[in-house]
Amino acid sequence: MSMIQTGRLQLKSDNAQATQGGNTSTFTRVTFPAPFPSGSTVIVLPFTQTFNGPETPGIRIADVTATGFLIRFNEVRTSNGGSDGRHAEETVGWIASTV
Rank of each mutant, 00 (worst) to 15 (best):
Thr98Lys: 06
Pro35Leu: 05
Thr24Pro: 02
Gln5Lys: 12
Phe69His: 08
Ala34Leu: 15
Thr56Gln: 06
Thr56Trp: 07
Arg72Ala: 13
Trp94Arg: 11
Pro54Lys: 09
Gly53Val: 01
Glu75His: 06
Thr50Pro: 10
Ile59Ser: 04
Gln49His: 07
Asn23Val: 03
Ser38Cys: 06
Arg60Trp: 03
Val64Tyr: 10
Gly58Val: 01
His87Asp: 06
Thr6Gln: 14
Asn80Met: 08
Gln5Val: 08
Asn52Arg: 07
Gln5Ile: 10
Arg72Gly: 09
Thr98Ala: 08
Asp84Gln: 00
Thr41Met: 13
Leu11Asp: 09
Phe36His: 02
Asn52Gln: 10
Val76Tyr: 15
Gln20Ile: 03
Asn52Ala: 11
Pro33Ala: 08
Val92Gln: 08
Asp63Tyr: 03
Leu45Ala: 14
Asn52Gly: 15
Thr41Trp: 11
Asn15Trp: 02
Pro37Val: 06
Ser13Tyr: 00
Ser83Pro: 02
Ala62Ser: 13
Ser97Lys: 12
Phe69Cys: 11
Asn74Val: 00
Thr67Pro: 09
His87Leu: 03
Phe36Trp: 14
Val44Glu: 09
Ser83Asp: 01
Ala18Trp: 02
Val92Cys: 05
Leu11Asn: 05
Gly93Ala: 15
Thr6Lys: 15
Ala34Trp: 14
Gln10Tyr: 02
Val76Trp: 15
Pro35Met: 14
Asn80Arg: 08
Thr98Pro: 01
Pro57Ile: 00
Ser25Phe: 00
Ile61Trp: 03
Ala16His: 04
Arg77Ser: 02
Ser79Asp: 03
Gly81Ile: 05
Ala34Thr: 15
Thr67Phe: 12
Leu70Asp: 13
Thr19Tyr: 09
Gln10Cys: 09
Glu89Lys: 00
Ala66Glu: 15
Asp63Asn: 15
Gly39His: 11
Pro33Asp: 12
Arg86Ile: 00
Phe36Ile: 04
Thr19Glu: 06
Met3Ala: 01
Thr24Ala: 10
Ser97Tyr: 15
Ala18Pro: 09
Thr50Ser: 15
Val99Gln: 14
Ala96Cys: 09
